[in-house]
Design a protein around this nucleic acid. Structure first.
Lengths: 332, 332
DNA sequence: CTGAAAGCGCTTACAG
DNA sequence: CTGAAAGCGCTTACAG
């Protein structure tokens, strides 16, 4: 097992050519047919595999892309990840996935280690963005694209969801269905999506003339099922809305469960709408109406922006917004 | 931004010492206090970051571990991944995650690229294991551990769940609750867990004297919510069991949804039990009784086995089985 | 088309 | 404790 790994030198010796020729053949560069044949045979016989570090050291590229997401357990990131992996693989890059756990210092630590060059580029989807992170992002010296909303002072390619548009879509839909006491079970408002969605909710609620009662607003400790349940119980303890908008699908699904446990009918008594339109939305019962914020498209677009920047580091910074769509199902 | 990256040579020059000394200080090897101080200052001033490829080329280690799982969207893998990431990070390794999509040739392609050495070791959780894969695993020439059941002819460290024991636990529980017409909504039996669970079900059902009717057995196209729903509809179309065991939590949850839609009460009319005891089990309504197959422990154990083998490649091959536990909740 | 040689940025015996 | 030098396995001008 600890057999010496064959190197270009060994292949060259066996093929009776120079290492330069071996390298050329193996990289598909112009070479004589005879040389090509000898090298390929020798490489196959020896089971030669190039040493990626030697190659990377020389060409200064790793063919690796890093992806940092807040929570690998959230289906919306899984969706995004799949799109990114497809693009990356299609262009010959491996994808390194790290879960930063939503804390901004984990993200910082990752940025730091990225500086050691083990990846050629970074896709970053931070959930909390504080001044320190913004400052670090402004100094980033390698290709990176941010998935999510960041200040314009950060000179990085960026693809963002239109949370505000999504909230509006959801509320207009519920309004059209005659709902007026619409509760908002949001995620933490110290996160970027949480605060964006909160502002959008307030604004749209006012425009539509919805019940402004503060007891209709509640914030879960995190964008998870568990925290969603807790928040839903508190909400229903203090008031009964005629509809609930969840800050994401997980929060909406948690709400549906608590409603069902209390014997309330969905959507008859309370309509429920989620955000992200994850895979889960289609399989709950009733199936969950949800706003698709374009996770798949955001992932794909971000990956493409990164690949483009890798090719042309000098290209102009792009900021792309992906528009939301509403999928109405049985929960509303 | 394309500023020249500082190298050890540059740090050495600025510190007025040799590159050897720089390397020693930066790697925490013995060095004089004065030297140490000069090097650390120079490195800090230059914002020096070591080139990981040069280092890996020299020391022949990448400090990367690769993890290949069948489906990053399945919460049981997320659980496993978290445990592995903790262990890996704790030992100074980065974790590269790849999703192989459950096809055995994807796994093969990964094994192949691993041979280029970009990771020091591999954690592999294949869902389908055919002869080609077994053959490839027998030839693997780098440290690898398999999470899941594989033939003993494969000389790799291995940690497996006790699916059979888990199925038995679930059935004995349902039997004790007076259920006799227990259906089994399994995943594909051309997968390793699928076939193991199927055999265990047949055996235990016989032992316990359960209704052996073949219409009580059904196989979903995959271990997912979507396929689970389809299978559950077919099952309930043809018969009404008094309990359903799902091949994993997703299949059990899908079953609960279909049952609820049809106005059946859980557990009064039909009890439901899942396997894996994922995060989801605690938050469905009713909460799902589920068999914990030790995903977290399997992940942790596998990571430790791999780290141990990295340290001592000659150590004896270990095969560890993780025992299941049953968590009874409201669905049964 | 092909080969000899330099060099990517590190680490590590080997002397002193 | 410290430095000069070799070498890890590649790629790529540079000659021929």
């Amino acid at each position: 097992m600890t057999a010496e790994r064959p190197t270009v030198a060994l292949v060259a010796q066996r093929a009776g050519v120079s290492v330069a020729s071996v390298s050329r053949v193996l990289n598909g560069l112009p070479a004589g047919a005879a040389t090509r044949e000898k090298v390929e045979r020798a490489a196959a016989e020896l089971g030669y595999r190039p040493n990626v570090f030697a190659r990377s050291l020389k060409v200064r590229r790793s063919q690796q892309l890093a992806l940092a997401v807040a929570d690998v357990g959230n289906p919306v990131y899984v969706e995004m990840m799949r799109a990114i992996e497809d693009e990356a693989r299609g262009s010959g890059y491996r994808l390194l996935v790290s879960s930063t756990g939503g804390r901004s210092d984990d993200t910082l630590a990752l940025l730091d280690s990225l500086s050691s060059g083990y990846a050629d580029g970074l896709l970053l989807s931070p959930v909390r963005v504080d001044d320190t992170l913004v400052e670090a992002l402004r100094r980033v010296s390698f290709p990176a694209v941010v998935i999510g909303t960041i200040p314009r002072s950060v000179p990085l390619d960026n693809v963002r969801a239109n949370s505000a548009g999504g909230v509006r879509l959801a509320l207009e839909h519920l309004h059209a269905r005659g709902r007026r006491r619409i509760a908002f079970l949001n995620g933490p408002s110290d996160t970027v999506p949480g605060s964006a969605r909160r502002r959008a909710f307030e604004r749209t609620a006012r425009t539509l003339g919805l019940d402004p009662a503060p007891e209709l607003r509640i914030e879960a400790g995190d964008f998870t099922l568990g925290e969603g349940r807790k928040a839903a119980e508190i909400l229903l303890e203090r008031t009964l809305p005629d509809a609930v908008l969840g800050g994401n699908d997980l929060l909406a699904i948690a709400t549906m469960q608590v409603l069902t446990e209390r014997g309330l009918r969905i959507p008859d008594d309370v309509a429920v709408v989620g955000m992200d339109d994850t895979e889960l939305a289609g399989v709950t019962s009733p199936a969950l109406t949800s706003v698709d914020l374009g996770a798949h498209e955001r992932g794909r677009t971000a990956a493409r922006l990164l690949l483009a920047r890798l090719t042309d580091p000098a290209r102009e910074v792009q900021r792309v917004a992906v528009q939301p769509t509403l999928t109405v199902r049985d929960s509303s």
